[in-house]
Design a protein around this nucleic acid. Structure first.
Lengths: 144, 144
DNA sequence: CCCACGGTTCCAATCACGGGAAGGTTCAGG
DNA sequence: CCTGAACCTTCCCGTGATTGGAACCGTGGG
C-alpha cells in the first residue's frame, strides 16, 4: 500500500502520515524501488489507532505512550487506565473552563438589548477590567 | 508609564503588549527620548479590555472588532450582542465536543480494571478504528 | 511515448505566547 | 562621576497539530 491508499484506509491524511513518521510517532515506512512509502496492514492499524486516539483528544505525546503500551504484551492495565483517567480529568477541566466563559458571557449578553442603542453592557464589562471569577485559567488558548 | 508599569497595571505581559502593537491590535505607543514606549491611562484601559476579552476566550480578531465597536460612540447594541452570542455558541460547541470525548473515554475506562493484567479494553477500542459517534469534529486541536 | 496523477522533499503559515540573546537607557548609591 | 542593576529595545526561535504550496520525480493507462 502506498501512502495514498494508506491514507484512505486509515483516515489519516498523507501529510500527517509523513509528519508522524518525521516526529517518530511511527517507524519509518519501507520504501519501494521508486522511493515510495509502502505500508503493511499492521501499520494501517497503527494509523487507525492514532486517528481514534486523536479524535478522543489525546496529544501526540500521550499517543506515543499508548502505542508503546499497545505493543507491550505484558502491559499492566493500571498504566493504560492512568493515562485515560488523567486525560478525562484534563478534558473535564477544559469543559469547566470553557463553560465558565460561556456562563459569564451569556449573563453579559442577557443584559444587552438587541437593538440600535449604544449602551450594551458587554463592552462596559470588558472595559471594567473585572478579574475572572475563579482561579487564573490553567490554559487560555483552547481555540485551535 | 513605561511598558513594565503598563504590564503590571493591565495584567498583560510586556511581551504581549509589544505583540499586540505589532499585529496592530493596538496603536503604536508614544516613545520617550530614550525610545521607551509610554502608555496613557486610556491605553492601560484598552489593555485591560483586551485581557478581559481574552479571558472570555475571544480571539484576537474578535477583540479587534470589539475594540472598534467600543471606540464607536454610535455602535448598535445588536452588533456587540451578535459577536458575543456567536462566541457563546462557539464555546458551547467546544464544550459539547470535549464532553463527548470525555464521556467516551470515561466509558472505556470503566471497563478497564485497575490491576496488573494486560487486557484493558481501552487499547482494544483504540485499535478497532471505531468512528467517532457524532459528526466529524468541527475542530480538533483544542488543547492549547 | 506522453500525460495525468500519484509520490517525494522542503518551506511556510497558522494562533497566542514565552524564552532568550545582544545591546541601549535610566537611575540610585558610592 | 562612575558603576551596576534593573529596566528597556529589537530580533529570532520554539511551541502543537495541521494544512498549503512549490519543485521535482515515479508510475501506469491509452
Amino acid at each position: 500500500m502506498n501512502i495514498g491508499q494508506a491514507s484512505k484506509a486509515s483516515g489519516v491524511s498523507a501529510k500527517m502520515i509523513r509528519y508522524y513518521e518525521q516526529i517518530k510517532l511511527i517507524a519509518p515506512a519501507d520504501r519501494t524501488e521508486g522511493n515510495y512509502r509502502s505500508f503493511s496492514d499492521d501499520e494501517i492499524n497503527q494509523l487507525q489507532f492514532i486517528r481514534r486516539a486523536r479524535s478522543l483528544g489525546f496529544s501526540v505525546e500521550e499517543i506515543a505512550h499508548l502505542l508503546s503500551l499497545w505493543s507491550d504484551r505484558v502491559r499492566p492495565n493500571w498504566e493504560v487506565k492512568a493515562i485515560a483517567d488523567g486525560h478525562v480529568r484534563a478534558l473535564e477541566a477544559k469543559v469547566a473552563e470553557i463553560r465558565a466563559m460561556a456562563d459569564t458571557l451569556r449573563e453579559l449578553s442577557r443584559g444587552c438589548a438587541d437593538d440600535e442603542r449604544p449602551d450594551c453592557p458587554i463592552l462596559a464589562d470588558l472595559a471594567s477590567g473585572v478579574q475572572p471569577r475563579r482561579e487564573p485559567a490553567v490554559s487560555r488558548g483552547f481555540q485551535a
